[in-house]
């Protein structure tokens, strides 16, 4: 196994950790922050696997716009899961 493969495995482990965190937390703001982290880590994976177009989209949409839109929605509905 090369260093490059190890890097991929590390990123996949991080992704799974993020997803488990999103599923478990009751605070919506924390969940959205974790989702932004997930997107950014996934962006690293895309860039490393040679897909810069997808990485750019992931960074801008996933980590940027989606987080802002979710936070705007949370400001409307309150941040606690009921």
């Amino acid at each position: 196994m090369s260093v490059s493969d190890l890097f991929d495995l590390l990123i996949l482990a991080l992704l799974i950790t993020c997803v488990l965190g999103i599923a478990r937390v009751r605070d919506l703001a924390t969940a959205v922050t974790l989702f932004a982290i997930y997107s950014f880590v996934l962006c690293l994976l895309w860039a490393h696997r040679g897909a810069p177009d997808v990485a750019m989209t992931e960074a801008a949409v996933g980590a940027g716009i989606t987080a802002v839109l979710f936070f705007t929605a949370i400001a409307k509905i309150g941040r606690r899961e009921k």
């Binding site: 810069p52 177009d53 750019m56 989209t57 801008a60 949409v61 940027g64 716009i65 802002v68």
Partner: peptide, 28 residues
């Protein structure tokens, strides 16, 4: 990113999202 999308990584979608993010940042 928009104008060079046919030569370098990037394109309309990506450039549009960056532009939209900037406008939202300004609005915030």
């Amino acid at each position: 990113v928009m104008l060079k999308g046919h030569e370098l990584p990037g394109g309309g979608f990506q450039g549009g999202v960056v532009l939209g993010a900037m406008l939202i940042l300004l609005a915030l």
